Every structure is written in C-alpha cells, then in structure tokens.
Simulated scan of single mutants.
Amino acid sequence: MHKIKCAIIGSGNIGTDLMIKIMRMSDILEVGAMVGIDSTSDGLQRARGLGVATTDQGINGLVALAGYSDIRIIFDATSASAHKRHSEILIADGKQVIDLTPAAIGPYTIPSVNLDDTVDAQNVNMVTCGGQATIPIVAAINRVSHVVYGEIVASIASKSAGPGTRANIDEFTETTATAIERVGGAERGKAIIILNPADPPLIMRDTIYCLCEEANTDKIRASVIEMIEEVKAYVPGYRLKQDVQFEHIGPNNPLHIPEMGRDFTGLKVTVFIEVEGAAHYLPAYAGNLDIMTSAAIRTAERLAMKRNWTEEVY
C-alpha cells in the first residue's frame, strides 16, 4: 500500500496536533508539508525537527514547494476567511481539500453520520469541534424520533483555543447551528461555545438538548449509546458522562421556543458528553483538538481508499 502525501496549512494547535497524529497513527497518509506564516511558530519548528518540508509563506509558499505536485490532500487549519482563497487555488490545482475551518464551502462532514455521502466532493468541511462532538448525538436521537429543536453547548479549555479558533467564534456558532439541521436532522439548531479559563484546564464537555416527538425512551437511549461507540472507533476519549436524561413536556405546561416562535409539547432529551484528548500535542484536556483532527484523518483515509489512491504505482 502506498501512502498518500498530504499537506497541512496552519501551524497552530489544530495543525500541529494533526501532523503528529498522522505521523504516529496513519497507515495511509504521509505528511508532505507543513505550511504557516510565522517561521518561529511551534508547529513549523516541530515539523522541521521531524524532517517535514515547511514554508512560512502561506499558500503561495506551498504552491512553490518542489514536492507540491505529489501532494494529493490538503488540510486547511487556518481561518474561515483565509480558507476561501485557499480553496479556490487548491481546487484549481486539482487537490483534495479537507477544511477544518468553519468556512463551510464544501459539504458538512461528520464521519459517524454522513461520511459516505460527502467523500466525492473535492472540498469537504469538518464543521467544528463542537459539531463533531454533538451532531452525532442529534442524529442518533433523530433516527428514532424527529428532532424539532436541537441546541448544543460546547465547553473547551481556554488554553486549547488558539488564535484561529478565537478568530472564528461567530463562524463556529453559525456553522455548527446549520450543521445541526443539515446533518443532525433538526428542524432548528443552535450552538453555543464557552472558552473555560479554569486552571487546571477542564476536559472538553458538551451538552446536547433535543426537543423531539414522543417516542420510546429505551430506543433513544440505545441509539445514543450505539452512536457513541461509532465515534469512539476514531476518537477513543469520546464518552457519555452520565445517563441520558428524559423529560416529558405536556400540553398543560408547554415549552416556548423563541427561535421558532412556537410552543412545544413532546419529549426533551439531554445528553452529556466528555471528550478526552489523546495528548498527541496539547494535554488530554484538549479533546476539541483530538475530535477535530481525528475526524479529518478518518475522512481523508476514507476518500483515499474509495478512490483507490493507495493502490496506484508511482
């Protein structure tokens, strides 16, 4: 099997974790280049120390690298605004783009939910760390009982949020909310992110609230647990923090949904998730890095196999 060369644009927390994870864990991918704009960044320095080709000239520097033509897959871990320009250049050059920003140019991709539906796209979007952690749960509930409204709260350690993440807060909430609807299946989605400054840093926590039609609670619980196992296959630190919670909301005391301008009666399902990182770069509290980079690698490996790139003779 031939390894597929890839490049990473963005030498911050996500890009660096992605590089280390590929080098340690992937039998299919090979890091061919690390791209940044700050020659002193930890990510670029680590890449040089590991023998990876680097450039601090951004996308232009990547295109100018001698080995650029051999690179098939590009991971973009910069910002939503920067990705728009990057995508245009890379798609014109025939590269496969995996977008780890909230730019949402390509289809939203959650490996445990809709990976086979999106891997034919030249640019796929990995939504957000909060989306990767919570949308599988919304989808798991929705496949048993239609979700009218889905709201998620993602709490991550402040120390795990680099400049790119902080610059994308608005895009995070908008992209995640939209993906809750398009991938999770909810009629209406809402997303909230909390950067927790606690010291020592807390492990990533996610809370998912779903208002859905009345249904068998045992079936919903079983669907959630099944989905958790599917995510754990590529994110081992992903786990249910406590038992799934149910609340029946009757017509005598309906719940008003301001975002939808309507009252709701039915079933409220609450799920608490914890994501412990593999500590490939930042410590284990940075589950937000781990779930994002793990999902991106899962997607890249799946599309490489589907297109038989690993069987080609160079």
Results as ranks from 00 to 15, higher is better:
residue 5 K to F: 09
residue 6 C to Q: 01
residue 6 C to P: 03
residue 11 S to G: 08
residue 13 N to K: 07
residue 13 N to F: 12
residue 14 I to F: 10
residue 18 L to Y: 02
residue 20 I to L: 14
residue 21 K to T: 12
residue 27 D to Y: 02
residue 33 A to P: 11
residue 33 A to N: 07
residue 34 M to R: 03
residue 41 S to C: 06
residue 42 D to M: 11
residue 43 G to T: 05
residue 49 G to W: 00
residue 49 G to C: 01
residue 55 T to H: 09
residue 59 I to A: 08
residue 63 V to G: 03
residue 65 L to Y: 06
residue 66 A to R: 13
residue 66 A to F: 02
residue 67 G to L: 08
residue 70 D to G: 06
residue 72 R to E: 15
residue 76 D to N: 15
residue 89 I to Y: 00
residue 91 I to D: 05
residue 95 K to A: 05
residue 100 L to F: 11
residue 102 P to V: 03
residue 104 A to I: 00
residue 111 P to G: 04
residue 112 S to I: 02
residue 114 N to P: 07
residue 115 L to E: 05
residue 117 D to H: 11
residue 120 D to H: 12
residue 121 A to S: 13
residue 122 Q to F: 03
residue 123 N to Q: 14
residue 123 N to E: 15
residue 126 M to T: 04
residue 126 M to P: 03
residue 126 M to I: 09
residue 129 C to L: 09
residue 129 C to V: 04
residue 130 G to A: 04
residue 133 A to I: 08
residue 138 V to A: 13
residue 142 N to W: 07
residue 143 R to H: 08
residue 146 H to W: 01
residue 147 V to M: 10
residue 148 V to Q: 10
residue 151 E to L: 10
residue 154 A to E: 12
residue 156 I to Q: 08
residue 158 S to G: 08
residue 164 G to V: 11
residue 168 N to P: 02
residue 170 D to T: 14
residue 173 T to E: 15
residue 173 T to K: 13
residue 179 A to I: 08
residue 179 A to T: 04
residue 185 G to F: 06
residue 190 K to W: 06
residue 200 P to C: 11
residue 202 L to Q: 14
residue 205 R to M: 11
residue 207 T to S: 10
residue 210 C to S: 13
residue 214 E to A: 12
residue 223 S to Y: 09
residue 224 V to K: 05
residue 227 M to E: 12
residue 229 E to P: 00
residue 229 E to S: 13
residue 231 V to K: 09
residue 232 K to W: 02
residue 234 Y to G: 06
residue 235 V to I: 13
residue 237 G to V: 05
residue 241 K to E: 12
residue 241 K to N: 11
residue 242 Q to D: 15
residue 248 H to G: 01
residue 251 P to S: 12
residue 251 P to K: 12
residue 253 N to E: 12
residue 254 P to T: 10
residue 256 H to N: 11
residue 258 P to D: 13
residue 261 G to H: 11
residue 265 T to L: 01
residue 266 G to V: 03
residue 270 T to P: 00
residue 273 I to V: 13
residue 274 E to P: 00
residue 276 E to P: 03
residue 282 L to K: 08
residue 290 D to N: 10
residue 292 M to P: 00
residue 293 T to G: 05
residue 301 E to D: 02
residue 302 R to K: 15
residue 304 A to G: 06
residue 304 A to Y: 05
residue 306 K to W: 00
residue 310 T to R: 08
residue 312 E to S: 08
residue 314 Y to C: 05
